[in-house]
Computed example of a mutant assay.
Amino acid sequence: MEGGGVASDAGSAVAPLAKWRDEFAKTFQYYLDRSTPNPVHRWLGTLAVAVIFVLRVYLVQGFYIVSYGLGIYILNLLIGFLSPKVDPELEGLDGAALPSWGSDEFKPFIRRLPEFKFWYSITKAFCVAFLMTFFSVFDVPVFWPILLCYWIVLFVLTMKRQIMHMIKYKYIPFSIGKQRYVGKPAANSSGAAE
């Protein structure tokens, strides 16, 4: 009989916590959904979080390994953002091609990592990295200029490979302006309205 009382006490303690977690998840998702159509505001918020992180690292004069890891993660996200969902190098596409300016038919560029997920992952990464700066176990002493030079070399080599891929398969991962339909030229000009 006493065992049932202990189980009910544990169950009653967990229920409010689970309810609070569910309410928090719903509220968080609500605000994420509301932010979706406002990319400028989202990216400005991420920029503010990034500035706070950089200020924290600068003022503490440490956590360079955390910053390096964050930089590698962001580089990985950037490659996913600039890459097509279906890579023609990896999969044999029977006649299907990536969109290009010179193609007859407009085919939208579908990213491997959509813009919203790219933004969300970067923002979450900056927040996690910022929280890590409050724990001294992550402050490994390193000579940061070497890490910075290595990251720059890695960035240049990775971007060179990505740009060569864009040139080889003739695609542009950014849409510039609104796509407009240009109709086929009329074969007979005498059918025009007077």
Results as ranks from 00 to 15, higher is better:
L98T: 01
A192C: 01
L98I: 00
F130K: 04
G183Y: 08
M1V: 07
P39A: 00
T46P: 02
T133N: 07
E115C: 04
L98K: 07
N76C: 09
F81R: 13
Q61R: 01
Y150W: 06
F130L: 10
K124H: 10
K124Y: 09
Q29E: 12
F28P: 12
Y30S: 12
T133V: 01
G4H: 14
P141W: 06
L93Y: 11
L44E: 00
A50I: 03
P145A: 12
C149Q: 08
E89A: 04
R111T: 02
L59Y: 09
V54D: 03
Y120F: 10
F143H: 13
V137H: 14
T46E: 01
F118P: 00
F116G: 00
C127I: 13
S67N: 07
R112A: 08
G11N: 12
C149Y: 04
C127F: 05
L157V: 12
M164K: 14
L59T: 10
L75N: 08
V54M: 09
L147A: 00
S100Y: 09
T27I: 13
I176Q: 04
P88L: 04
A187K: 13
T27C: 11
V60F: 10
I74L: 06
D87Y: 04
S35T: 07
A25K: 09
A192D: 09
S175C: 13
A7R: 15
L98H: 02
Y31L: 12
S190H: 09
G102M: 07
S83I: 02
I167Y: 14
F109M: 10
V140N: 13
I79T: 14
H41P: 14
Y30C: 15
G191M: 15
W144E: 07
L148Q: 02
P37Q: 02
S67G: 09
M166R: 14
E194C: 04
Y58I: 04
A192V: 06
S83C: 06
L78K: 05
V49F: 09
I172S: 10
A187G: 03
D94M: 02
L90A: 15
F138P: 12
I167S: 06
I163A: 08
P39D: 06
I146A: 11
A7W: 11
G69L: 03
V40H: 11
R111A: 09
Y58S: 05
E105H: 11
